[in-house]
Amino acid sequence: MKRHLLEAGDLDRVDATLVLDTAAQIEAALTGREVKKLPTLRGRTVVNLFYEDSTRTRISFELAAKRLSADVINFSAKGSSVSKGESLKDTALTLEAMGSDAIVIRHGASGAPHQLASWVRGSVVNAGDGTHEHPTQALLDAYTIRRRLGRLEGVRVAIVGDVLHSRVARSNVVLLHTLGAEVTLIAPPTLLPVGIGSWPAEVSYDLDAVLPKVDVVMMLRVQAERMTASFFPSAREYSRRYGLDARRMAVLGDEAIVMHPGPMNRGMEIAADVADSVRSTIVEQVGNGVSVRMAVLYLLLGGAPS
């Protein structure tokens, strides 16, 4: 394992599998236990440095760190010196001077975790940077797929929606490819980046043509404001062409699952009855997130590189 987890490409197949296996072991070790806490990271300090609101991701990392007995400091951009104009670098050096061993960073600017990693000695974990990557989300998605389907090799995954602006999509394409899955990206052409041809994934504009052939459908959040920038004409048209409703879900294979990184726009990219169906892993993904993040923190912070 590298010292930081900045993007899915930091993990080769061996490391990625190690994270998933470790998460599974941790989950097994804690299942049914009264005391859901391990002493592993006692005395270590993990800082959650969040420049964007993301209660879901922050809580998941916080819980992961606390279950490993690390001390956790939540540093949110609101109401802190950040809003008074302190630079990312000064903030990073301050946190390090206070003895942080790892910084979990969520930032609106792509690449901010990379820069942070060049300024601090401790580990940096990317908890989502701009429209770049969100590697722990990809790990928990891979973990969820493996748990549900029993494998990742050869699993056919459709990722549907705003790929252009999605850090979840970028991380998933890289990680799932590393782990042997076959990814197809489906979106209106306006929501696919120029240069997507170099990604290890297929591209399609036609959701209905792809759905019968996949094992996993991962729906991405589509923000309504994209409409005002003419990425698509209307929410209704988007939903009609690229939304996952009960009719479309019916053409999926028997074992196929439906995923969503959350938060969902019910009625936009995913219909409520789909989100709540037995195929949906949406709630499960949240729980798996804690195990996967525990594994990441353990592997990054557990000790000196062996």
Partner: peptide, 18 residues
């Protein structure tokens, strides 16, 4: 726009300058 729009902007998640 943040950088040249192409393969690398797509990967880096930086808005492209075509």
């Amino acid at each position: 726009a943040q950088m040249h729009e192409g393969d690398r902007s797509a990967k880096l998640g930086l808005t492209g300058w075509p």
